[in-house]
Design a protein around this nucleic acid. Structure first.
Lengths: 325, 325
DNA sequence: GCTTGCTATGGAATCCATTTCATACTTTAC
DNA sequence: GTAAAGTATGAAATGGATTCCATAGCAAGC
């Protein structure tokens, strides 16, 4: 395959001039530019981008760390990221970590190896201290609230959002509220648990330990949760559920068992997913697309800034009132 | 940042020896290896992978072209791809094209620029001839049946699979069958339409043009389709629907309107999605995860083979009988 | 004792583009 | 008329690795 040297030789100019043509530098005469372009055409030449990356120290790529893509929550954030990346002519390298620290570190190492210009961490199993070490090699943005670290974050205030959900439910008169959560030890799950317990205590609401149901990540987990509820001697009047698809599973199963929603059981979901719209689930919209988009915009800005300062961007959220509460 | 030359100087060896240590070449004495490793540790050295990519002509990355990731169909294929990529220590570059030819070409150009080692095209708007041009620069695998082209493919026989679905329905006694499809001009959609029309004609089944409903890609499109069905003077006894989430929308809406499924309307879905399992939708499992996994395995093999021959891998499919037919 | 063959090591070429620096010719400005 | 600014061009240094080739010591084989 032809290289820049050969083009230069054939077009009768210097390598520098060819490079100038390739990069649209103004100081090239019309004739020479034309000669170079013709030779390029003739030899079907293109740059070897690896050489460009080597000498410029930039790759035009950003890696994204998330556990798995086949989950609405992550795929929507990814969608926001991808859309902005497209606009900025950046490439995204997708790394499904499955929460394996080893894999996540491997991605951060890519930053050190100069294979990528930045890293967006959508969700991680890594400790903030480890992530911080890598900020020496390039910008990092997380989609989790990590406090004021040496890397940026775009996050939802899970504590406040969850409280607002609970307040909405109590405002509607419900005095006993259950809770379905995903991974029990996830960083946002821990925050929500605290919000839940504190709110219950403050408002002296009814509470049973079994009303907190963990590891609900699929529609079927929601259906299983409904089954558990049906077997309980004391059932809560309302459920708050992180993820509309889980809420959907619970609602469908509960209805199948003859419960009326919200009459016998009120349900509030999270994430404003399409399935939630279909089932008219009252939900907390936490602007996931915007989260991804904002994360990319921040990392893009930081890549192009001389001395990037970490940014901490808080996203807003809002309740979408439909008919399951 | 330190480079290999500096390491060599500090460790008192040649650059070649450092490279040998880095690449685990056997012909390095114990002492020198130790000295090199210690210097590397001391200077916190890592290779600049761009230099490695330049000289080796490999990048260890494969690009994936798909229209959007926030759709079950694509996210599951991506999951299969990602899982295999992880096993092979390969990186995936995700390109959401939104079916913009311009963006898709850009990705193929990356192959020409040597930025990636291969391309997996999950779904595309490009003509096969254009894709074929790029096979000169590296291996390409599609997840569509493109016939015997100069690039590989992993595909489902949509014609046969769809026919089998129709046969299943007629086997159950249904004599009038409607049809919900996604993008009407999608490559697999076109094949299914043919299968549908031909099957109807062959078996002399009842048919109304309005029983073919297009552009059903979301749950809500399914719900809208249910509304259309309800308004029809002549309603089919069964519906065959490409995508369980669309089928779910249709079922939920139809039940809401008082129809009994399958009594008043039988529904057969596609893709074996979680929501389908929850609603007990009879569906056609077309092994999407396996499709992604196989696509990666093929491209990986071709990257490492001297003279890769295109491979055409046909996947099987099977009906999962549940309770909506 | 001499030929092979293996281990160990380094020099130099190679991959391919960008960019700095040096040079020289034109304009423009005062 | 001369200094300053702008245009046009190329040589050479640079980024940072891998790998071919040459050399040499040493053990085994006959």
């Amino acid at each position: 395959m032809a290289n820049i040297k050969e083009i230069a030789r054939m077009a009768g100019v210097s390598v520098t001039t060819v490079s100038r043509v390739l990069n649209n530098h103004p100081y090239v005469s019309k004739d020479k530019r034309a000669a170079v372009l013709q030779t390029i055409e003739q030899l079907n030449y293109t740059r070897n981008m690896n050489a460009v990356h080597l000498i410029t120290g930039r790759t035009g790529a950003v890696a994204v760390i998330l556990p798995y893509i086949h989950a609405f929550y992550f795929s929507i954030i990814m969608n926001g990221l991808a859309h902005e990346a497209l606009l900025s002519q950046y490439r995204l390298i997708l790394c499904q970590s499955n929460y394996l620290e080893e894999e996540e570190i491997k991605v951060l190492e890519m930053l050190r190896h100069k294979e990528i210009d930045g890293v967006v961490i959508v969700s991680t199993a890594l400790k903030p201290d480890i992530i911080e070490e890598y900020t020496a090699y390039g910008p990092v943005v997380t989609c989790q609230d990590s406090g004021e670290r040496r890397y940026s974050s775009v996050y939802i205030e899970h504590y406040a959002a969850f409280r607002e959900g609970l307040e909405y439910l109590t405002g509607k008169g419900y005095r006993s509220i259950g809770y379905c959560e995903g991974r029990s030890n996830g960083s946002s799950a821990v925050i929500r648990q605290a919000a839940y317990r504190e709110f219950i205590a403050e408002h002296k609401l009814a509470f049973e330990e079994e009303w907190m149901i963990y590891d609900c990540t699929t529609e079927e987990d929601g259906a299983a949760a409904a089954q558990s509820l049906l077997k309980m001697p004391q059932r809560p009047e309302a459920m708050i559920i992180t993820g509309d698809h889980v809420a959907a599973g619970l609602i469908i199963e509960a209805r199948r068992a003859g419960l009326s929603i919200p009459g016998d059981l009120a349900v509030m979901g999270f994430d404003n997913q399409p399935i939630g719209r279909l089932l008219q689930i009252t939900t907390m919209d936490n602007h996931l697309y915007e989260m991804g988009a904002a994360a990319f915009r921040i990392i893009h800005e930081q890549i192009h800034s001389e001395r990037p300062e970490p940014v901490y961007r808080k996203l807003d959220y809002r309740i979408i009132e439909r008919s399951t509460v």
